[in-house]
Design a protein around this nucleic acid. Structure first.
Lengths: 218, 218
DNA sequence: AAAAGAGTAAAACAAATGTTTGAATACTGC
DNA sequence: GCAGTATTCAAACATTTGTTTTACTCTTTT
């Protein structure tokens, strides 16, 4: 991505993120990383100890970049309406997951995240606590605000999962979506429209769930 | 899974599905498969030509099993109400993706599918046409029936993606969901409840989308 | 300017992995 | 029962790949 002079270490991190994401941990060879980063093979082991050490560093780096450029609360103020908060939250996810300044549509480094969801490595535990749990908690609090009551985890968490699931699926299945529904592929120009769609869809979902559960409990 | 005598070829297929799913293509060694299936290494190349040939066969086999045991239209008759059809469709996905008779929660062979969504291999093209596209078309027709009108692909496909996305995310992120929302992990005993939740949520979503788009177009 | 240390380079090592070979064994049709 | 085919097996081959070693270069410190 960045062509301007960087330190060897930085260049390795950037390049490794893309390649690990595209190929997966096992399929990635340090020779390939070294080649792409125009760095000697031994430099990788020198800076990161071994392949696994490099991977951990990459994972942390990727999450740091994503949540620094697109924080969970992006655009959300204390006086923002709950519904608006949800829109910002979803739009944030789309941009973090799919924009080029973010995780580039999981086509590059971002696919790392999907791979970790699928099969968490030990290195994932750290980012789970640091980035993902707070992110989830924020969403849950937004849902509570929209519902106007706290229906408990058996309602809240599935709601959160449904919302996050839609966003991540766009990112995860981007290659397939491009093939069977090209018009709606999650490319840069579509992000706002798709985010707004998911937002509306989710508002409707939350509303429906609220009706049903209120109906049952009372 | 099956312990009773099978042909070598069948045993290889079964075992390879699990291992490819858990480890990914590159990380899977044919020696490991041979060991687990109690088969000579060369037998694999004999029956399937090479590692890639085995993988293609496994992928087709996995999809065949899944859509044979849990067909897209499972439970859907011609006179089923559209809303009911959606419930059956979603429930079918949950069982296909997550039950032990299906793809076993992507913990075993089913994870193959998620891997293919993430990074399609050439072998995926075939199953895409044979299984996935018809499956998508069915869902789209159900959505049209629920909406009572055809709002065009820019509305329909995002709807379909939102619905499928929720289902697949449960399967994909099962390891992580277990960690942060254990009560709602997609295990056998939760499938009906979660399917019904996703159904309600999606009905609400479709309704909301329909309102908005009618509002704008007219 | 000399010494020390950090960073880089090329080559070599050892383990693993996909594939092939050629012989041995089981099965099938006549 | 036998020829012919299909299947299984153990061993070997050629690559690939993570890691280490050793020497070299450059910067910083004294």
């Amino acid at each position: 991505m960045t062509e301007y002079p960087q330190t060897t270490k930085e260049r390795i991190l950037e390049v490794a993120g893309d390649i690990f994401g595209k190929e997966g941990f096992k399929a990635t060879t340090i020779r390939r990383i070294a080649g792409a980063a125009q760095v000697n093979i031994a430099a990788i082991n020198y800076h990161f100890r071994d392949k696994e050490g490099l991977y951990s560093a990459v994972l942390e780096h990727v999450f740091h970049i994503g949540f620094t450029r697109f924080p969970s609360k992006m655009g959300i103020e204390d006086d923002t309406l709950p519904e608006q908060q949800l829109l910002f939250f979803i739009r944030g996810m789309f941009y973090r997951l799919l924009s080029n300044e973010g995780w580039a549509g999981l086509s590059g480094r971002g696919r790392l995240i999907a791979r970790e969801l699928l099969a968490p490595t030990p290195a994932f535990e750290a980012v789970l606590d640091k980035y993902i749990k707070p992110h989830k908690d924020l969403l849950v609090s937004i849902i509570i605000a929209i519902m106007g009551e706290n229906p408990g985890p058996r309602i809240l968490l599935p709601c959160a999962i449904s919302i996050i699931g839609q966003c991540i699926y766009y990112a995860l299945a981007a290659p397939v979506i491009k093939k069977i529904a090209e018009e709606n592929a999650p490319v840069e120009g579509n992000l706002d429209r798709l985010a707004e769609f998911v937002w509306l869809f989710s508002l409707g979902g939350i509303e429906k769930i609220r009706q049903k559960t209120s109906c049952v409990t009372r």
